[in-house]
Amino acid sequence: MKCPKCGSENVNVQLIQATGKTKKHGNGLGGHVNNAARGLTAMCTLGMSNLVWKKSKGSEKTTFKNETVCICQNCGNSWKA
């Protein structure tokens, strides 16, 4: 691979993370019923059940997009491959 600026073949190719996107999914009906039952049990046990029974929060999934970037070691020019 040659540098488009100086024509050198001393080029380093790197893969970098360009962007990330997080998708969040809700609880659904089962999660809402679980949280309601948890609240009722907490009222009956004066909050002691909350030490063991955790709240349903849903789920998250993160995806990343990668880009290939070339860097000339002679002149410092960088470009996307």
Rank of each mutant, 00 (worst) to 15 (best):
K65Q: 13
K2G: 02
E60A: 12
A42M: 03
C3V: 04
T19F: 05
V33N: 04
I71N: 05
F64S: 09
C6S: 08
S49H: 05
C72W: 10
K80L: 12
L40T: 07
W53Q: 02
G28W: 02
S59F: 03
T41D: 01
K24N: 12
G26Y: 00
H32T: 05
S78N: 14
S49L: 06
N77M: 01
Q17A: 14
Q73H: 04
E67F: 08
A36K: 09
L15M: 10
K24V: 13
V11C: 07
G26R: 00
K54I: 00
E67K: 15
T19W: 02
T68C: 11
G58M: 01
V69Q: 08
G47T: 01
V13A: 10
K23G: 05
S59E: 11
L40K: 09
S59C: 04
S78F: 08
I71C: 07
T45N: 10
W53G: 00
S78C: 10
N10W: 02
K80R: 13
G47K: 00
Q14S: 09
G31P: 07
W79E: 13
A81S: 12
N66T: 13
L40A: 15
K23R: 05
S78D: 14
Q73W: 02
L40R: 04
S49W: 03
K21M: 12
V11W: 07
C75Q: 09
N66W: 15
S78W: 08
T45K: 05
E67T: 13
K61A: 15
G28Q: 03
N35T: 08
V33K: 12
S8H: 11
A37I: 08
K80H: 11
V69P: 03
K24W: 10
K21P: 02
T19L: 06
M48I: 12
E67I: 14
E9Q: 11
I16R: 08
G76W: 00
G39M: 12
T63D: 01
R38Y: 01
G47D: 00
L46K: 00
K54W: 01
A18P: 01
V69I: 15
A36S: 10
N27H: 04
T68L: 15
K57W: 04
G26L: 01
T22L: 07
T22G: 03
L51R: 04
C72G: 06
G28E: 03
A18I: 10
S56C: 10
C44P: 03
C75I: 09
G30M: 08
K54N: 06
L15H: 02
K21W: 03
K5H: 09
G28V: 03
G28M: 02
C72E: 14
M43A: 15
G76Y: 01
T19Y: 03
Q17E: 15
K80N: 12
T41R: 01
A81I: 05
K21V: 13
K61Q: 15
L40S: 11
V13Y: 15
G58I: 00
A36C: 10
G39I: 06
C6R: 01
T62Y: 04
N34P: 00
C6D: 14
W53D: 01
K23A: 08
S56D: 12
R38T: 02
L15F: 08
S8T: 09
K57M: 07
T68E: 14
I16N: 04
G31H: 06
N74I: 15
N10K: 14
K61P: 04
A36R: 11
V69K: 06
G26W: 00
W53Y: 04
K24G: 06
L40C: 11
